[in-house]
Nucleic acid binder design. Structure first.
Lengths: 127, 127
DNA sequence: ATCAACACTTACCTTTTTGTGCGTACTTAC
DNA sequence: GTAAGTACGCACAAAAAGGTAAGTGTTGAT
């Protein structure tokens, strides 16, 4: 009994496969605000409003949603102190840090090299 | 005169800033299909329809659009042979490979660890 | 007494993204 | 002769993402 169990051992995802659940994870991580949340939290614990101020252009609604997704996936830990006014702290879990390191490296490359990209885009303008 | 000029030398982007153009680059790279195109092309040159078959679930329209974005940004090189039926080859530029390496590492982490994420998500189900 | 701050949530609306289906121009295979 | 493959572009429609504004409940500051 129970055919679908215990076989999670060495299974590697296949992002090219349409139905592979790893796609969902990728989408959450590389979502518009997800990337920036990872980079921000890699620098340490933040409160909600700190994140909101740090990440330019994010709305409360989107930040809340993004954080909930990442919490669900086990990348972000949320700690709420029952005080008034509310005080909530967000930080990366162990797993979150592992991903964040990868995300950070991508972000780094872009921050350092984006002028090269802009230059290329300008050349290709006519295209 | 000319305060905004010639200072593109050592300028690093700031992804947290709403108006920084690096945001656009990030969005193209981390777009839904962009990530998968990078990973696919890192394995070598592909024709359009090869990419389409490889990347499960992508429509012709979206693949074309994604490739155009990445070509514009100078990440992808497009070579069309004037034969009939059409024959077009896509590959990564030098710059494209640099990014692709970063993207690949993120994709790798996800493929290897996505079951951990799924497990965490299941635990948080009640949340 | 009024207001801002906190961490959200909800409803409503706009924008963006994505999919679907059709057309193209020619060739090869059936 | 009919269909499929090639690499798209275009028009239309649906779906998803995102933004805006308002409300919550309490407290400390003005």
């Amino acid at each position: 009994m129970d055919e679908v169990r215990l076989n999670a051992r060495m299974e590697r995802g296949e992002l090219f496969a349409e139905r592979c659940p790893s796609r969902q994870v990728l989408n959450h991580v590389t979502s518009r605000w997800g990337v920036l949340v990872f980079v921000a939290l890699l620098q340490g614990t933040h409160r909600f409003s700190e994140l909101r101020r740090k990440i330019g252009g994010v709305s409360e609604r989107m930040l809340a949603q993004t954080l909930q997704n990442l919490e669900q996936d086990g990348f972000v830990q949320r700690v709420a102190y029952p005080v008034v006014p509310p005080h909530v702290e967000y930080s990366l879990t162990e797993m979150g840090q592992e991903v964040a390191v990868q995300v950070q490296q991508l972000a780094d490359w872009i921050e350092v090299n984006y002028t090269r990209v802009l230059a290329a885009a300008q050349v290709n303008e006519s295209v």
